[in-house]
Design a protein around this nucleic acid. Structure first.
Length: 104
RNA sequence: UGAGUCGGCCGGGCGGCCGCGGCGCGUCCGUCAGGACGGGUCGAGGAAAGUCCGGACUCCACAGAGCAACGGUGGUGGCUAACGGCCACCCACGGCGACGUGCGGGACAGUGCCACAGAAAUCAGACCGCCAGCGGCCUUUCGGGGUGCGGGUAAGGGUGAAACGGUGAGGUAAGAGCUCACCAGCGCUCCGGGUGACCGGCGCGGCUAGGUAAACCCCACCGGGAGCAAGACCAAGAGAGCACCAAUUCGUUCGCGAAGCGGUGCUUGCGCUGACGGGCUGCUCGUCCCAUGUCAGCGGGUAGGUUGCACGAGGCGUCCAGCAAUGGGCGUCCCAGAUGGAUGGUCGCCCGGGUCGACGGAGCAAUCCGCCGACCCGACAGGAUCCGGCUUACAGGCCGGCUCAUUCG
């Protein structure tokens, strides 16, 4: 996901899943390709720390693409506690948040 | 061996599995666009950071020029595209020393300021003290002493960051560069050395001069403005109303009626361009741009895409010139170009450091060395047009030069 409009639409209309380190927004089955975006604000940390979190989430989300309905739009927002978190922790929270957002 | 100082460099490594961005290649599929798979190659830093200086590049303005204003820089010589940077040297200060620090032009061009303390803070200054004289009073051992008044005195005391040179001698009522000798310091002439800042020396002068210019100011030198969201190209898009013409479509009683792509004209809105009048940091000649008004002409706007954009003040090696900064020759290499922004995720082993414990060795001991194990830690920090600097942040480690102290030879 690349355009600001897609991000805005998904965050406003998507089903929310809230966890300590992240929040997911999912709009299922709008047709076309499945798209995923990440939002890591400056509150999370410096550029180095934000990139690290974004890379962890990108790899975790890649493994979960098969369980997301085809054509969905997903936005993962990282919260400040995600700074320095282990990938295993982020994985747990991502699974739980996606479940609350109606995936699976 | 210990203490110190300066410079240079590195800033985790290897492997398994799963992945990412750019650019070539091959095979296959496809309606041209393109897609799939395989393989190759390149893919963050010493600070990529802060955005503080300097440039390249681009646009705007400019015949441009002078003065003024404003901003910046400030020992000398060199280096550089340039710099407020770097190198070497000078001077001052600190250190035994290696070395470090410097916001290093001018305080006889002028103006201002110098708190508190102190009597007095810059054409300085009599509070105490010292001194002789004078008159009154008190006292007297008849020498004088005390007190008071005006006067002389900058040697002494005290205040201060700073009090108008220092030491000695002469001199004097007491003193004073008042005079002399030496020393310090200031100015000037001359001689020698150096490209220069400046250094060394002979002589003379008047005897003595405070600080502050990151206070105003003076002097010398430098400076047009905005910035890659610069700029260029392309795609898409390009208002409303009225009138007329009208491709085409629909209906038709074949007369025509309705809708209307597109075009023309008028009105209005918005934007752009030009002219007039007016305004530009001030002035002069001159010129251009712009808010608004009038007139004329044109049609846009918008971070959509492409480009700018990565062969460069380039990296590495070597030789030469130079104390060095740096420059030159030769050879060799191609080395990030993303745009919600790639260079990674995870696991294992190793490496480095710290703490604790066991064992062995040396020693009277504190302790040191070796080896093994467990646990913990591995920093600061992510390109966004590019380059040269500066500044700031940084776990830990490596290499080298030099200095001082001690011991031994």
């Amino acid at each position: 996901m690349r355009s600001g409009a897609d991000f805005r639409h998904t965050i406003r209309r998507g089903a929310k899943g809230v966890q300590p380190t992240l929040v997911t927004h999912v709009v299922p089955g709008t047709g076309g390709h499945t798209s995923v975006g990440f939002v890591v604000s400056k509150a999370v940390g410096s550029a180095v720390e934000r990139n690290r979190v974004k890379r962890q989430l990108r790899h975790l989300m890649r493994d979960r693409l098969p369980v997301v309905p085809e054509g969905s739009r997903v936005v993962v927002r990282a919260l400040p506690p995600s700074q320095g978190a282990r990938s295993s922790t982020l994985a747990q929270h991502l699974d739980a948040a996606l479940a609350r957002s109606g995936v699976r």
